[in-house]
Amino acid sequence: MAAGGDHGSPDSYRSPLASRYASPEMCFVFSDRYKFRTWRQLWLWLAEAEQTLGLPITDEQIQEMKSNLENIDFKMAAEEEKRLRHDVMAHVHTFGHCCPKAAGIIHLGATSCYVGDNTDLIILRNALDLLLPKLARVISRLADFAKERASLPTLGFTHFQPAQLTTVGKRCCLWIQDLCMDLQNLKRVRDDLRFRGVKGTTGTQASFLQLFEGDDHKVEQLDKMVTEKAGFKRAFIITGQTYTRKVDIEVLSVLASLGASVHKICTDIRLLANLKEMEEPFEKQQIGSSAMPYKRNPMRSERCCSLARHLMTLVMDPLQTASVQWFERTLDDSANRRICLAEAFLTADTILNTLQNISEGLVVYPKVIERRIRQELPFMATENIIMAMVKAGGSRQDCHEKIRVLSQQAASVVKQEGGDNDLIERIQVDAYFSPIHSQLDHLLDPSSFTGRASQQVQRFLEEEVYPLLKPYESVMKVKAELCL
């Protein structure tokens, strides 16, 4: 049975990233139509530049190519590739079939990587351009969430054990800070992308030097003109047959890092959902379990974690691919890159769409948070109580021993009897502590235990987050809708 299948058929496997999760716009960027249309555009740009620099290419040939950029006979191309065992030459023939007058000058002087690699770089750039505003929107939604809850005390956790208090907004800023680093890295790697350009079979530009009869300047002009037509500021000066596969490492490393950030955020949300302090959106008709109707599973956060793990592992592909590119190139890269580049971007696209949807509907339960604080705060307040007693004339050592005994009794009630923490009640009825009984409410005010959390939130948002989001103001209103 021949390899390949009808990918629109229910009898043929289709990647869930495309069929179930990723956005239509990201799927289109990695589609065959987008790819092969870009090949034709690159052939047109090459012909236009070659004509401008004096090669015998007519206006009629150029116009014929322009008129057929979208006229792609995919069936013919597939048949040609089956016959020739070469995808680029299959599309040269297919393009030439609908451009008979231009057929002889299509791909003039070029090698397969002229269309293959340059198209990949265009796709990487455009895919990054799709991700950047999506990530900015996630940051914006979380920034709104953090600002609104900047002063809401909550129990902090280290080692997932109760620690000092923080605020809900401050905790959210930990998430935002990681995503801001990801946004900066995505922008950097996007701006650092260079075009492969017009380089020939081993990167020496020998074929173009021959076409222009040894004119170095025209060869350099050709490279520059096509690079500018493709919208790049610069091209690699040095290439082998391909652009260095280190570029793929750079791009997928940034995406993998984004995956790590999203995994951490969504894990926190899942843990908070278990504590009943916070939940992701839950639709009115949504079913959490087929057997347990009360369940409210954090399905979206779980999906993000599941896909983020996949995204983090994909960076190993370009690392290994770059390491086995012998001399000017081997074909070890080809099949692998067809999979890992598309999957990385479709996965990143999915987790950003999902995280935006989550961040637009996060639900906080202040009463649950308050109750958990009441359970733990008495123990945390013991040092403040000791200091207040010393100020009232008591002995630190005597007070410490009193607190120690009462704390152990209260802990026994919590752990052995399943009761509430009654340390404060014990202190309130103990005559030894009568000098500070009137101060206990103040000493137990949760806001006095959150330090500068709310001020940190305000400063972080104003100095770091809002300036970073400013270039994306025009796209901030787009909502994230999930079908599944």
Rank of each mutant, 00 (worst) to 15 (best):
A2E: 08
G5Q: 05
S9C: 14
D11C: 15
Y13L: 13
R14I: 13
R14V: 15
P16H: 15
R20T: 00
A22R: 10
P24D: 14
E25M: 09
E25S: 14
E25Y: 11
C27G: 11
S31Q: 08
S31F: 00
D32G: 12
K35A: 10
T38N: 05
W39Y: 15
W39Q: 14
R40G: 01
W45A: 11
A47R: 02
T52I: 09
I57H: 09
I57C: 06
E60N: 10
Q61M: 10
Q63P: 05
E64Q: 13
E70C: 07
N71T: 09
I72T: 07
I72R: 05
F74G: 12
A77R: 02
A77M: 15
E79M: 11
R83T: 11
R83P: 09
R85S: 01
H86G: 01
H86P: 00
D87A: 02
D87S: 05
A90P: 04
H91E: 08
F95D: 00
G96S: 10
H97F: 12
A102D: 04
A103F: 07
G104F: 09
I106C: 07
A110L: 05
D117F: 02
D120L: 07
L121V: 13
D129T: 12
L130G: 07
L132A: 12
K134S: 10
L142S: 06
A143G: 12
R149D: 06
L152K: 05
T154Q: 08
L155Y: 03
L155W: 02
G156L: 00
G156D: 01
F157A: 10
T158D: 00
Q164S: 10
V168Q: 04
G169V: 01
W175D: 02
D178T: 06
D178I: 01
C180Y: 05
C180V: 12
M181H: 10
D182I: 01
N185D: 06
K187G: 13
R188L: 07
V189L: 15
V189M: 14
G197C: 07
G197K: 03
G197W: 01
V198D: 03
V198I: 13
K199L: 03
K199M: 02
K199I: 00
T202E: 03
G203K: 02
T204C: 09
T204Q: 14
Q205R: 00
S207F: 05
Q210Y: 00
F212M: 12
F212E: 06
D216P: 07
H217K: 07
K218D: 05
E220Y: 08
E220K: 07
Q221M: 15
L222F: 09
D223E: 10
K233D: 09
A235H: 10
A235D: 09
G240M: 05
G240C: 06
Q241D: 00
Y243W: 05
T244G: 11
K246L: 02
V251R: 05
A256I: 00
A260F: 04
V262H: 02
K264A: 09
K264P: 04
I265Q: 15
D268R: 00
L271S: 03
L272A: 10
A273R: 01
N274E: 08
L275D: 08
E279F: 06
E280D: 07
F282A: 09
Q286V: 01
S289P: 00
S301K: 02
E302H: 00
R303D: 00
C304K: 05
C304N: 15
C304T: 10
C305D: 05
S306Q: 03
A308G: 11
A308P: 03
A308E: 01
R309H: 13
L311C: 01
T313L: 10
V315P: 09
T321E: 00
Q325R: 02
W326S: 04
E328P: 03
E328S: 02
T330Y: 04
D332N: 00
D333I: 00
A335S: 14
L341W: 10
A342W: 10
L346R: 05
T350Q: 12
L352E: 05
N353G: 11
N357A: 08
I358K: 08
E360D: 14
K367C: 07
V368D: 04
E370A: 08
I373R: 03
R374H: 06
P378W: 01
F379P: 06
T382R: 02
I385C: 09
I386K: 03
M387N: 11
M387C: 10
V390G: 07
A392Q: 10
G394L: 07
S395C: 10
C399Y: 06
E401G: 12
K402P: 04
K402G: 05
V405T: 15
Q408S: 13
Q409V: 09
A410T: 04
K415C: 07
Q416H: 13
Q416I: 09
E417Q: 14
E417M: 10
E417S: 10
G418I: 02
D422E: 09
L423D: 04
I427L: 13
F433H: 05
S438G: 09
D441V: 13
D445P: 04
S448N: 15
F449E: 05
T450G: 04
G451L: 04
A453S: 13
S454K: 15
Q455I: 08
Q456N: 05
Q458A: 13
R459C: 11
E464D: 15
V465A: 09
V475M: 14
V478P: 15
A480E: 15
E481Y: 09
E481I: 08
L482S: 09
